[in-house]
């Protein structure tokens, strides 16, 4: 099922036109004219066009799909994959950050801790979620929940989708760097399985702060990089509009990242991107999560932690 109010990206224009035509034909056929054949032909063509377009996205186009306004966010995945979700709020210290959500839930009946960045869809919600850019209290809430999961021996599943940690005065004053750093250190030693999914934008340290895990999965059209393409362009060419060039240089797609052995698996998206079919996307992800969790549960605590250490220990390229 396609999501309502489909909004199209620039490069999706041909698809948009075709779909508009289909809609027109459908409205005609209600007047007693049977255009079923014509419609199904066009639908097949649109499907083909989508498949072709989305299997040949360049890196900048992928970044746009990763940021698509209708792309499923953490709460969408929670709704589709988990049951009994209870959102837990606050870092017990300063406040509750709306750019990160988390709580207890069940996956296939088993209790787990779910944590993820949360973006908004309309303007009001975008502002409420601070565009998915957490402040330190967001990371501290995430850590509080992860430590709780450890105490109660619950696996942790995180969803990563952020442009980055929020660059603000308050964030600096309350220790944005310290909050991120502490999560990196603590996630490395937690004694329960951690599965990380990069669902949309994996924006630098703000993403990594909830992305140290035993398995790291990336959705087919998600991105992951040390800096946003715009930020990179601003530094390299003093021109934030050269995002397309920077995206190519940063090699930020799931295929790129898999090649560098930073992630374990690419989760396929429905044709035309996750935003076209939340349910189908969630089903693919559900299967991957269940399978990986089953494997991780076979490991003893010391083996789990050592394997996680070695996994990140190996991530580098240099000459000696």
């Amino acid at each position: 099922m396609a999501q309502n109010n489909q909004s199209y990206l620039e490069f999706e224009k041909p698809i948009a036109e075709l779909e508009k035509k289909i809609q027109e034909l459908l409205s005609f056929s209600t007047d007693g004219v049977d255009l079923k054949n014509e419609v199904s032909k066009l639908e097949k063509k649109a499907e083909q066009m989508r498949a072709e377009l989305f299997s040949n996205l360049n890196r900048w186009q992928t970044a746009q799909v990763a940021r698509h306004i209708n792309r499923p966010f953490t709460l969408d995945y929670i709704q589709h994959i988990f049951t009994d979700f209870v959102e837990l709020h606050g870092d017990r210290n300063f406040g509750d950050d709306h750019a990160i959500v988390g709580g207890l839930a069940r996956m296939d009946g088993e209790p787990v801790m779910v944590i993820g960045h949360q973006k908004g869809r309309d303007t009001k919600e975008k502002v409420f979620r601070n565009f998915g850019m957490p402040n330190p209290e967001g990371y501290r809430k995430a850590l509080r929940l992860m430590e709780m999961a450890e105490r109660f021996k619950l696996p942790i599943i995180t969803f990563v989708d952020t442009p980055g940690a929020f660059p603000g005065i308050g964030a600096e004053e309350r220790g944005q760097a310290e909050a991120i750093a502490r999560n990196l250190r603590e996630m490395a030693r937690l004694t329960v399985p951690i599965i990380v999914v990069i669902t949309g934008e994996g924006g630098s340290g703000g993403a990594l702060a909830i992305a140290v895990g035993d398995r790291v999965l990336m959705l087919e059209h998600s991105v992951y990089a040390v800096i946003s393409p715009e930020g990179c362009a601003a530094i390299l060419w003093s021109d934030g509009t050269k995002g397309a060039q920077a995206a190519e240089a940063l090699k930020l797609t799931a295929t790129d990242i898999k090649e560098l052995e930073v992630i374990d698996e690419i989760v396929p998206e429905p044709v035309g991107g996750a935003h076209r079919d939340h349910k189908a996307m969630a089903d693919n992800l559900h299967e991957a999560l269940a399978r990986n969790l089953k494997e991780l549960k076979k490991l003893s605590e010391p083996d789990l932690i050592e394997a996680r250490y070695q996994k990140f220990r190996k991530m580098s390229r240099f000459i000696e």
Binding site: A181, G205, A225, I227, L250, L252, I257, M315, S316
Partner: peptide
């Protein structure tokens, strides 16, 4: 890019 980020972890 991504490998620099991973040095943090």
């Amino acid at each position: 890019s991504i490998l620099s980020l991973m040095q943090m972890a």
